[in-house]
């Protein structure tokens, strides 16, 4: 289903937004590992990135080669307008649900 955002996909998009200019495979992976404390393989991450690109939430371009990468170029990712819209929709839905909750959700 086009436009549907999975939980992990949302996480990836927000991570890319956090990284801004520095969003490429390794940094995204490391940030998710640190912030969300999730272990995952590079293959799984790139598969998600590829799918997001297919859905039109991401665009990618090749950057400059660096020595640390053995002279290989980085593929940078950028979120698109439709990704922003999807994220906003997701957030407003959640906010609404939070506000209308009949049970007090606050902890401690």
């Amino acid at each position: 289903m086009k436009g549907y955002l999975g939980e992990f996909e949302e996480l990836v998009l927000l991570t890319i937004a956090n990284l801004a200019e520095e969003a490429y495979g390794t940094t995204i992976l490391e940030m998710i590992e640190q912030q969300a404390n999730r272990k995952m393989s590079l293959g799984a991450l790139h598969s998600t990135l590829t799918r997001l690109e297919e859905k039109g939430f991401l665009v990618s371009y090749l950057g400059e080669p660096t020595a640390k990468r053995g002279g290989r170029r980085k593929r940078y990712f950028e979120i698109t307008q439709s990704a922003k819209e999807a994220l906003n929709n997701m957030k407003s839905l959640r906010d609404e649900l939070w506000q209308n909750s009949k049970i007090n959700l606050s902890v401690g």
Partner: peptide
């Protein structure tokens, strides 16, 4: 596969 190998290399260094 250039970018993928680059990512792998970086992770390997870490």
């Amino acid at each position: 596969n250039e970018d993928l190998l680059g990512d792998l290399q970086e992770l390997y260094e870490d």
